[in-house]
């Protein structure tokens, strides 16, 4: 670890990775909440047009990518709010148009696909001090509203109509969310790359939602997971000599894969224990001949037994009587 920190390029790489790992999952929390998990991917495509434009005009790629990506994001959101682009087709045209334009412009600039690839897949170890400064400024610009406006953004992204009846200007907040996502995408293009940035906005959030309960807890946990996998991926790729962006995403998916069984286990424990069952006097339901009876599976939403809501829990109809799951057994209701 000491020798890693001895290299200035690795110091910059680790800092850039750290910042990306904090920011991407933070804004990603709202993106996931709004069920726009693939928005980051599309915005990544749009940012490619910005990079192509910068290559064509011989200027720095990041500001151009930010400008083009933010413009594209606002256009998508305004069209969505006016009901003009009903998701799919409008987005597809914009996103693939961006990708094609970027590749085309970089080709005309004579740079070809090779020049683009460091932005497509990230190029952590070539981050310069100027790059790092830009990334740090953008990170602060994203993080302040993402955390400071968390209650408002939470309300807007979970229940937009209710948020409006709280006097929130939901269209402004929705535009803010996509603009922050667009800035994040360009910020992450040097670390994980434009093609994989969406994974860093979505996968740590999905893992965090499996690991903790509650929106704010998941926001913080997603940032922790994001930081762990980006720094871990940067360090790992130094020793393993692998592309850092890919390793970061694979690590994130690994954390998600581990969080899955954990969440299933916890969900089982958290299942509401039924209130004391009332004595049911119901002609259509018979009483058990033999209690407890053997039962091959655990009742749940997936089993084939009919569900009946009973007060605050669900009973499952089993051969003419009702089972209520209670801890590791069932009660007769």
């Amino acid at each position: 670890m000491i020798d890693i920190l001895g290299y200035p390029f690795m110091q910059r790489a680790l800092l850039a990775a750290l910042l990306t790992g904090v920011i991407a999952p933070a804004i990603g929390t709202y993106i996931v909440q709004r069920r726009l998990s693939l928005l980051g991917d599309g915005l990544g495509h749009v940012a490619i047009a910005g990079v192509g434009l910068a290559l064509l005009t011989g200027q720095a790629p990041v500001p151009w990518a930010v400008a083009v990506c933010v413009t594209g994001a606002v256009a998508v959101e305004v069209l969505r709010q006016r009901g003009k682009a009903t998701g799919d087709v409008g987005l597809a045209i914009l996103f693939y148009g961006g990708l094609a334009a970027g590749v085309l412009m970089s080709g005309i600039a004579g740079a070809g696909a090779a020049a683009l690839s460091q932005y497509l897949f990230g190029s952590l170890t070539t981050v310069t001090e100027t790059d790092l400064l830009v990334i740090a400024v953008l990170a602060v610009l994203v993080l302040v509203p993402t955390l400071g406006l968390a209650p408002q953004l939470f309300a807007v992204s979970t229940d937009e109509e209710f948020a409006r009846t709280q006097g929130l200007r939901t269209s402004a907040y929705n535009i803010a969310i996509v603009v922050l996502a667009a800035v994040t995408v360009t910020l992450a293009m040097r670390t994980v790359g434009l093609l994989l940035v969406s994974a860093l906005m979505v996968v740590p959030v999905a893992a965090a939602q499996n690991l903790v309960r509650g929106f704010y807890a998941a926001l913080v946990a997603a940032m922790a997971v994001g930081t762990t996998v980006t720094v871990g991926g940067a360090v790992g790729s130094f020793y393993l000599d692998t592309p850092p962006g890919a390793l970061i995403v694979v690590l994130a998916i690994g954390v998600f894969a581990l969080s899955w069984p954990y969440s299933a286990l916890i969900a089982r424990r958290r299942r509401v224990a039924p209130v004391l069952p009332e004595l049911v006097d119901d002609d259509t339901l018979t009483v058990h001949q033999k209690v407890p009876e053997e039962h091959p599976h655990r009742h749940g939403p997936d089993c084939e037994h009919a569900e009946i809501r009973h007060g605050d829990h669900i009973d499952y109809v089993h051969e003419g009587h009702r089972h209520a799951v209670h801890g590791d057994h069932y009660d007769e209701h």
């Binding site: 408002q152 709280q166 998941a218």
Partner: peptide
């Protein structure tokens, strides 16, 4: 809403009274 607690959902009802 995915993954929000009861208290978090109810807190949204105070937003009209809160400053950003």
């Amino acid at each position: 809403a995915s993954g929000a607690t009861v208290a978090e959902v109810v807190s949204s009802g105070r937003l009209a009274l809160r400053r950003i």
